[in-house]
């Protein structure tokens, strides 16, 4: 049956709530409305207002109370309505959610999964298209997952909710309507494992979230040029699956990192550093990056010029192969 990524996440939330009554879903408009992207559709109807509820419009409040609820023994799955609205909650996430288990020497566990629709490509108004993943991946104590397929969206969400560590779950909103023929429930690789989506021999393309599909399209186009791209879906940005990255580079000798987020100090910087530290003698070319530019996210009519696309990836492939 064809299901969309949004439906897969909705089903994952539904199944997690069915199996464990400690799972709570809350946030802005997640109850009666079912979320602005309908990802929490019918959860309130199916599980009561106690288990899926609308909160006041206050992001720090949502995450701070999630911490209190988790301390009590619940497994909160709060939603931040959009990437650009997570910043009011930054202090609660960075100063408490990420640190409290460590401060308490593991006495306090905070199994909170924060859902954040992120990234651009939907023509949205300002503050609705951001890619803040590097902030979270830089913060010790958080795990950061982002699915690139509906199957992963389901399986990784289930795994995130079942974990005792706090998880930032980044949902690529431009892929909410991406369809896949699959039966749910489905169990894919554990979330901390990167997955090779397409094998290839010339260049490794590391990507995640919304860029997985773009990279797959680029690999298809590259094949017409006679270039064989290996597409690696990282899935987890914290931890990073270094062994899988290195194994791929050892096969191809070339690496490109693709992400929507601005280039400087984005995930690409860390990935490039790890590859040159640990696979230096396998490299035939410097690690290159196909990313967003170091500007604020552009207005909707200009996003096509800003976002990495098939052409930008292929340009980098050509550059890599020129060494």
């Amino acid at each position: 049956m064809a299901i969309t990524m949004a439906q897969a996440i909705n089903q994952a939330l539904h199944d997690a709530m069915s199996e464990d009554e400690r799972v709570l879903v809350f946030g802005e408009d997640v109850g009666r409305l079912g979320g602005v992207f309908r990802v929490t559709d019918k959860l309130q109807e199916n599980f009561s207002e106690d288990r899926c509820f609308d909160t006041p419009l206050a992001e720090s409040g949502i995450i701070g109370t999630a911490i209190g609820l988790a301390m009590y023994g619940f497994r909160p799955v709060p939603e931040m309505q959009f990437d650009g609205f997570t910043y009011p909650a930054f202090e609660q996430i960075v100063s408490h959610l990420a640190k409290m288990p460590n401060r308490s020497r593991g006495t306090v566990k905070l199994p909170v999964t924060i859902r954040i629709p992120y990234g651009g490509g939907i023509g949205a108004v300002e503050h609705h298209s951001e890619s803040p993943e590097a902030y979270w991946a830089h913060t010790a104590g958080l795990k950061v997952f982002t699915p690139g397929t509906p199957e992963d969206a389901y399986s990784m969400m289930r795994a995130a909710i079942a974990m005792d560590d706090p998880v930032i779950f980044l949902e690529p909103k431009r892929r909410y309507w991406m369809k896949s023929d699959t039966e749910l429930p489905v169990e894919t690789e554990p979330p901390h494992k990167a997955v090779v989506r397409r094998e290839g021999s010339d260049v490794s393309v590391f990507c995640y979230g919304p860029m997985v599909r773009t990279a797959m399209e680029a690999a298809e186009a590259a094949a017409d040029e006679g270039w064989s791209l290996e597409v690696v879906d990282l899935r987890s940005l914290s931890p990073l699956d270094t062994p899988t990255m290195l194994a791929s580079v050892e096969r191809t000798g070339r690496a490109i990192v693709v992400h929507e987020a601005a280039q400087t100090l984005g995930m690409g910087a860390e990935i490039a550093a790890r590859i040159q530290e640990q696979a230096f003698y396998s490299l035939e070319a410097p690690v290159l990056r196909a990313t967003g530019y170091d500007t604020p996210y552009p207005p909707a009519k200009l996003e096509e010029f800003w976002l990495p696309d098939v052409d930008r990836i292929l340009d980098m492939v050509e550059r890599s192969l020129s060494y």
Binding site: G64, T65, A66, G68, L69, Y72, Q92
Partner: peptide
């Protein structure tokens, strides 16, 4: 203050 509130919500 938010942790106290969340904990109380849980209770």
């Amino acid at each position: 203050a938010l942790h106290a509130t969340g904990f109380a919500m849980g209770a």
